[in-house]
């Protein structure tokens, strides 16, 4: 990609040409229909994408450092069977590679069998968060674990509040923050 501008310009001009070519050289009705279908499906995909963009992404706020405020959050219930409790995992990132500050993870065990059943329950567990600040890395104190009270579900989002929990910063500072989550429910 030595010259991306050049490439962009080229594709800008070449793309309509490539679509028009069959028409110019003449084609059957079947082929025409196929092309229409292709264009339609492309349009549908583009529309869907736009819908996804305005679909809820969830959010997290925690009163740590200058305030952690992340515009994404999701929740999933992980069941393992074999006598193990289910795990509620709430996180602000999709996977390890997108886990950049600010970010957040809460994980605890529950008797609930679905995210729906969590409403009204309080789950204790481990909370980790990082703010934009240097050394703004926090984890809940293992002696007094963090907890989240789940309040309600609206459409595809689970609402909850982080109860005031003791948190330890990586440089030894303690805090007792509260917070709120709005987590998009992931399909199991």
């Amino acid at each position: 990609m030595r010259n991306p501008k050049w490439l962009t310009l080229c594709s800008f001009f070449l793309f309509p040409l490539s679509l028009a070519t069959p028409v110019l050289v003449g084609c059957s009705k079947e082929e025409m229909n196929k092309m229409v279908e292709q264009v339609q499906s492309k349009t549908t995909a583009a529309v869907k994408e736009t819908v996804a963009k305005i679909a809820p992404t969830g959010s997290v706020q925690i009163a740590l450092d200058d305030g952690i405020d992340i515009p994404s959050c999701s929740v999933r219930l992980l069941s393992m069977g074999a006598g193990r409790a289910n795990v509620v995992q709430i996180r602000s990132y999709r996977d390890e590679s997108s886990d950049q500050p600010q970010s957040f993870l809460f994980q605890g065990t529950t008797a609930a069998n679905s995210v729906k059943e969590l409403v009204g329950a309080t789950v204790t567990g481990q909370l980790f968060a990082q703010s934009n600040r240097e050394l703004g890395l926090w984890q809940s104190d293992s002696e007094s674990p963090a907890s989240i009270k789940f309040l309600s579900i609206k459409e595809t989002e689970l609402f909850g509040e982080i109860n005031q929990s003791q948190m330890l910063r990586v440089d030894g500072k303690n805090a007792f923050p509260s917070g709120a989550i709005k987590a998009v429910i992931e399909k199991p």
Binding site: S79, M80, A82, Q89, L105, Q107, L137, V170
Partner: peptide, 30 residues
């Protein structure tokens, strides 16, 4: 059932371990 059990266990523990390692590593570097 076994697949689900192992996959979900791996997902759950991997995340916690990753954060714990990040925290301990930063503490040590300070």
């Amino acid at each position: 059932d076994v697949e689900k059990s192992i996959r979900n266990y791996q997902i759950a523990t991997k995340e916690v371990l990753r954060w714990k390692e990040r925290f301990a590593s930063k503490q040590a570097s300070i």
